[in-house]
């Protein structure tokens, strides 16, 4: 499902964020990507939806070599991935409902079916009652749940979450993790970057531990 082979990523200016990273994730697997700040967690996650391209090695997602994808093919790759960003990346000029509707606007779903999907996703994360609210009115935890709803509305096979529990209180963080795990339980491949070692220890799943851009444990 996801395969990294001798992947390196060097940013312009010479900083090497990743070096010689190799691992594979099977369909339905859950992996935590951990490590201290600056270890390369976010860079690793950004390589999966081709937000960044590897400078060496190959990244294969759903059978596609992401590094070799043409610009025009990237949107179609991303539509099959669910992305949850650390800073949520919500649009505050529209409602909760419209935020979740956004990824469906690019696709071929009829408006009525799309609306049904949106409500199902909002229901799954416990925000159905807030569909008309503006995201600004939501708490940090609710905003993250909204971001998850938007990530899963396309029913992706892979869900990638970058620090989904950062800046959240323990209760909100636990709820976010429960929601993410519930998607993994129904077969969604889940990659979660976190620096919360306690969270990783609590769930005892596969851990990709990064240190200075190199994979210390996989």
């Amino acid at each position: 499902m996801i395969s990294f082979s001798a992947v390196a990523k060097r940013y312009p200016g010479g900083q090497e964020a990743l070096s010689g990273v190799t691992f594979s994730l099977a369909a339905g697997e859950l992996a935590f990507v951990t490590g201290p700040s600056g270890a390369g967690k976010s860079t690793l996650l950004k390589l999966i939806p081709a937000i960044e391209r590897p400078t060496a090695g190959s990244v294969v997602v759903n059978g596609q070599n992401v590094g070799a994808l043409k610009r025009g093919a990237i949107p179609y790759l991303r539509r099959n991935l669910g992305l949850v960003f650390q800073d949520h990346k919500l649009l505050y000029d529209r409602s909760v409902f419209d935020n979740v509707m956004l990824p469906l606007a690019f696709g071929a779903l009829a408006p009525r079916d799309a609306a049904r999907r949106v409500r199902a996703a909002l229901d799954k994360v416990g925000l159905l009652a807030r569909e008309r609210a503006n995201p600004i009115q939501l708490s940090g935890g609710e905003q993250q749940r909204l971001a998850i709803a938007r990530a899963v509305v396309n029913r992706p096979a892979v869900l990638v979450a970058d620090e989904p529990t950062a800046n959240l209180d323990a209760e909100s963080a636990a709820r976010i993790v429960d929601i993410l795990l519930s998607f993994n339980q129904v077969g969604v491949t889940l990659v979660v970057a976190t620096h919360d070692e306690a969270l990783v220890a609590r769930h005892g799943r596969r851990v990709l531990r990064l240190a200075a851009g190199r994979l210390a444990a996989a």
Partner: peptide, 16 residues
């Protein structure tokens, strides 16, 4: 700009 960036991250094509 923000909406454009988010849309692209979520799979919007250039044409869209």
């Amino acid at each position: 700009r923000e909406e454009i960036e988010v849309s692209r991250l979520l799979g919007a094509t250039d044409a869209f």
